[in-house]
Lab assay of single mutants.
Amino acid sequence: VSKLITEALSVSQERVGMSLVALKKALAAAGYDVEKNNSRIKLSLKSLVNKGILVQTRGTGASGSFKLS
């Protein structure tokens, strides 16, 4: 899941990052079952932020906008 998230964010052209909703849409378009794996998406977002791979530009927790650091 982390690999899919970083790939989706690297393609994004948004300056402020990608919102959680837009990220879920991009994952669904890539063929990932978002409804079934919603908790996995949130956990991997939090772990990527803690590792310093992603930066959360808006919001708290697993909601808001994210971009690559």
Rank of each mutant, 00 (worst) to 15 (best):
R15L: 02
Q56T: 14
A29F: 05
K36W: 01
V49H: 03
R40H: 10
T60M: 14
N38K: 09
A28N: 07
S69E: 15
L45T: 01
E7I: 01
K46G: 00
V34G: 05
V34L: 06
Q56H: 15
F66L: 10
G31K: 13
S69I: 08
A28F: 06
R58E: 13
S12P: 02
I5G: 00
G17V: 09
S44E: 15
S39W: 02
R40M: 06
D33A: 14
V21L: 11
R58L: 10
K42Q: 09
K42F: 03
S63E: 15
K24F: 02
L9K: 07
G61V: 07
L48R: 00
L4V: 05
N50W: 00
I41E: 00
T60R: 08
G61L: 07
A22D: 09
R40S: 03
L68S: 09
K51H: 05
K67S: 13
N38V: 14
S19I: 10
G17F: 02
R15S: 10
K24T: 05
E7K: 09
S12Y: 02
K24M: 05
G31E: 00
I53D: 06
G59H: 08
F66W: 11
S63V: 12
T60G: 12
S63Q: 14
G52L: 06
V21F: 08
A26C: 08
S39V: 02
G31D: 01
V1A: 09
K36A: 09
S65H: 10
K51W: 02
D33S: 12
L20I: 12
I5S: 00
L54H: 04
K3M: 01
S44A: 15
S19L: 09
L23F: 07
L48D: 03
K46R: 11
A29N: 13
L20W: 12
Q13W: 02
S69A: 14
A62T: 12
V16G: 02
A8S: 03
R58G: 15
G61N: 14
E7R: 13
V55W: 05
G17P: 02
T60V: 12
N38H: 03
N50Q: 14
D33V: 13
K51G: 04
L20Y: 13
R15G: 08
A30S: 10
K3L: 02
E35Y: 12
A30L: 06
I5C: 03
L20Q: 02
T57W: 05
A22L: 03
L54F: 12
M18W: 04
I5K: 01
V16Q: 14
N50I: 03
A29H: 06
N37S: 12
D33N: 05
R58M: 10
K46H: 04
G61W: 07
R15P: 07
A30W: 08
G17H: 09
L4W: 02
V34P: 06
I53L: 11
L23D: 00
A62R: 10
A8H: 04
E7S: 02
E35S: 08
N37P: 07
L68P: 07
A8L: 05
A30K: 12
V21N: 15
R40K: 15
F66P: 09
N50D: 09
S44P: 01
S10Q: 07
S65E: 15
L54Q: 14
G17N: 13
K51S: 07
T57K: 12
N38M: 14
V55K: 15
Q13F: 01
G31F: 05
D33E: 15
L68T: 11
S44L: 09
S44W: 03
S47H: 08
V21D: 13
L48C: 01
Q13L: 04
G17D: 03
K67D: 07
G64N: 04
A26W: 07
V49N: 02
G31M: 06
K25C: 01
E35T: 11
K25M: 01
A8W: 12
S65T: 14
L45K: 00
A22Q: 13
G52D: 10
R15E: 14
Q13V: 04
I5F: 04
F66S: 09
D33C: 05
L68R: 08
R15T: 14
L23P: 00
I41V: 05
L45P: 02
E35L: 07
M18E: 09
Y32W: 09
S2Q: 04
G64L: 14
S69C: 06
A62D: 13
I53N: 13
G17Q: 10
E7M: 01
Y32T: 07
N38R: 03
S19Q: 07
G64S: 14
V34E: 04
S69V: 10
S63D: 13
V49G: 01
S39H: 10
L27V: 06
S65A: 13
A29I: 05
L54K: 10
L20P: 00
I5Q: 00
L9V: 05
L20T: 04
K67T: 07
K46S: 04
L9F: 11
K25P: 00
S10E: 03
S12K: 05
G31A: 06
A29W: 04
A26K: 14
R58Q: 14
T60Y: 06
A28C: 07
L54S: 11
N50R: 10
E35D: 03
S44C: 15
G64Y: 11
V34C: 07
S10K: 07
Q13D: 06
E14A: 02
L43R: 14
S65K: 11
G52Q: 05
G31T: 05
L27E: 00
K25N: 07
G61F: 07
S44R: 07
V11D: 08
K51M: 05
R58F: 09
R58C: 09
A28Y: 09
